[in-house]
Design a protein around this nucleic acid. Structure first.
Lengths: 159, 159, 159, 159
DNA sequence: TTTT
DNA sequence: TTTT
């Protein structure tokens, strides 16, 4: 059966994004976000548990993160789970689970992030590859242009 | 095949909640929230379209809404779609689609909603009915107690 | 604050898709899907309530629906809520809420839909407009090519 | 800001569930599910990548899994991410990310899972603890009774 | 108007 | 280790 792999998170950045610009101009950003839940333990005491999530953004989303996101900012992230395995420096097999973002929305008011209180950003999809990705999400600057939505349909159709 | 009916919204209240207290002490709150998306029209002009969603909350969630939510506040709502049909005053059959909330999270900073920047609230579930619902989400006041999470499992199990 | 408008449904088609091919080659498909939930009423009797959702798909998704979906088939739909208002033939203002699909996944085994048990399909996004949309989701036929995922990133990067 | 931690998966069980019954009668079930996505590599070749997710279910959900789920079965899982760290037998610090399920829906037709094609199951929530949890999700058998929904509201209210 |  |  076909499958679905979707994650939806709202949390705050634990660090500023780390951004790498790969050969070919592709950007990758990474940062952790925290979510926390409170619950009562057996003694009825309120407890809090914080969960940390490793977020990865590519291309346009990475560039938006680089420009606008800072430690502490609240974000909405929609993406998919991905577990990588690798050998650490001691040759030990390790696993690392991250969330590859498809969509990122900046939450919070002006005072939270100094950017006017929000914006939606989205991974490109379809067969866009390398070169022409820059069309749908300009590599060189997102001066408004990257706030694109997935609104492809003609908006003035007669129904 | 079994089914899923889930809605996830982040938006701002268009009005203060309207709250009714039914006989039996059950509370119901209703308010609209707006989401907006921007897109480019055929002329490449940036356009915005706002969508309005009718939110319905029951019991504990309704009481939280009554106490803490105001017009303009940003919220995260998770719920399910429900379309009611009814006859209006002229006897005309009409349809109305609303989102019945299962979970509500107040977003925004202190300055947004004057309540300290957030809180998660959740519908009770299971076979709780009438009387003992009040245990899991007291009808008479949610002074902290309603910030319950769905953390049922013992937290100190050995794995 | 930026907003989110997301719907996730799993249900069965109540009818075969109705597909229109607009001038310009754009396809639009519509069909209802049913979700149902069971609950116990006050007398402890098991009750079932069925909800009907109006699904709209555009372009490539519409073409996939046209080719592969039939009444009764189970589908996973991810999309956004949209409420249209219009005047009916008697000049009465009416509202209609539909789910505009961004993603569609056919569920069920071979015996359910006669197509091999699944497939993921996704709306294109970004600033693709008119002409070059056909690249990412060919208008003239989805012979396998429309099973595209939102996997844009190079897959062999060193991390 | 308040947070959200939500995962939605549709996939197939890689193994039969492993179920433990803890002292106190609490059940825990674990199993991996696979999701897969296809994409085109740089050479335009269709590639498939499978992701494995560790699912954990508690109490009633665990018991349903024990009774009805088998290797290969398709399921819908809704839950939250949780990363545990622990020392392995060599004293090495390791991390393991799992999805703690809040909701589980069996997908597939009769032929897929031999149980009649579906059913929705849900974690209890609220302040149910120990003893009275068994009310909402009987430990001793889910003979139909566990198919509970989160439908708490009176269903015959005048709106 | 679906599915169980 | 699943499914197609």
């Amino acid at each position: 059966m076909a499958s679905v792999n979707k994650v939806i998170l709202i949390g705050n950045l634990g660090k500023d994004p780390e951004v790498r610009h790969l050969e070919g101009g592709v950007a990758v950003a990474r940062f952790p976000i925290a979510t926390s839940e409170t619950f009562k333990d057996k003694q009825g005491q309120r407890q809090e548990r914080t969960e940390w999530h490793n977020i990865v953004l590519w291309r346009g989303l990475a560039e938006v993160a680089e420009k606008y996101l800072k430690k502490g900012n609240p974000v909405y992230i929609e993406g998919r789970l991905r577990t990588n395995n690798y050998q650490d420096k001691d040759g030990i097999q390790r696993y690392s689970t991250e969330i590859v973002a498809d969509q990122m929305t900046m939450l919070g008011s002006r005072s939270d992030n100094g950017n006017g209180g929000g914006g939606n950003y989205q991974e490109s999809s379809g067969s866009n590859s390398g070169a022409n990705y820059s069309t749908s999400a300009p590599a060189g600057g997102n001066s408004g242009g990257a706030s694109s939505f997935q609104n492809d349909e003609p908006d003035d159709l007669p129904f």
